[in-house]
Amino acid sequence: MRLKAQRRLTNKDLADQLGVSEAYMSQVTRGMRDVKLSTLDKMQREWNVTIEDLFKISESDLARIAAWRARQKKKKIPDELR
């Protein structure tokens, strides 16, 4: 959520702008839930950006994604095998 960070928005701010719950936005930004197309549409209209802008991936995004994947792998390994 590079654009969210650039705009210095919290999940609550974003949820209020888009008319969704803060819990939903939290789950989306943490990769626990897929974002609805209707939410993406609202987001691009609210921020006056293209859908493509919402999906652009930067170098810092790649580092954040790699760190998230590493945490997910760690969670899947049973404690007795660590």
Rank of each mutant, 00 (worst) to 15 (best):
K75Y: 09
R2D: 01
Y24L: 07
A23S: 15
A70G: 00
A70K: 13
L3N: 02
L81F: 00
D53Q: 01
D13N: 15
A66P: 02
K56V: 12
T10S: 15
E52A: 05
R45Y: 04
D53T: 02
S60G: 02
N11V: 12
R7F: 03
R64K: 14
A5D: 14
D61L: 00
V20R: 06
T29A: 08
R64L: 13
Q17H: 15
G19N: 12
K42L: 08
T39C: 08
Q27I: 01
A15S: 14
I77N: 02
L3Q: 03
R69A: 12
W47M: 06
I57E: 04
E46P: 01
N11C: 15
L40D: 01
K73Q: 09
L54D: 01
D41Q: 06
T10V: 14
K56C: 05
M25D: 04
R45S: 02
I65N: 10
L37V: 10
L54C: 00
A15R: 09
R45T: 05
Q6S: 08
E80L: 05
S60N: 13
D16M: 15
M1L: 08
E80N: 09
R69F: 09
I51E: 02
N48W: 03
M25Y: 07
K74D: 10
V20K: 06
M32H: 15
R30N: 12
S26R: 13
A70F: 05
S26N: 12
R8P: 04
V35I: 15
E52G: 05
S58G: 01
A5F: 05
S60P: 00
D53F: 01
R2I: 03
L62A: 12
K76V: 08
I57F: 06
Y24N: 04
L81D: 03
L18D: 07
A67T: 11
L14C: 13
S38D: 15
D16Y: 11
R64V: 12
W68V: 08
L40N: 03
G19W: 07
E59I: 11
T50F: 02
Q6N: 05
M1A: 14
K36N: 12
I51S: 02
L9P: 13
S26T: 07
L37T: 10
K75Q: 12
K12E: 14
K73I: 06
S38N: 14
A23W: 06
F55A: 02
R82G: 08
A70M: 04
D41K: 06
Q44C: 13
R69S: 10
G31L: 13
D34Q: 05
E80V: 08
E59N: 11
Q72D: 10
K4R: 14
L14R: 04
R82I: 12
T39N: 05
K56F: 04
L18N: 05
R69N: 11
S38Q: 09
E80S: 07
A63V: 14
E52I: 07
A23N: 13
G19P: 00
N48C: 02
D61V: 06
E59R: 15
T10A: 12
V20H: 03
R7G: 01
K76L: 15
I65F: 13
M43C: 01
Y24G: 01
K73L: 11
A15N: 10
S26G: 15
I77F: 01
E22M: 11
K4S: 10
T50C: 03
T50M: 00
R45N: 04
I57Y: 03
L18E: 12
R45W: 01
Q6P: 03
F55K: 02
L62R: 14
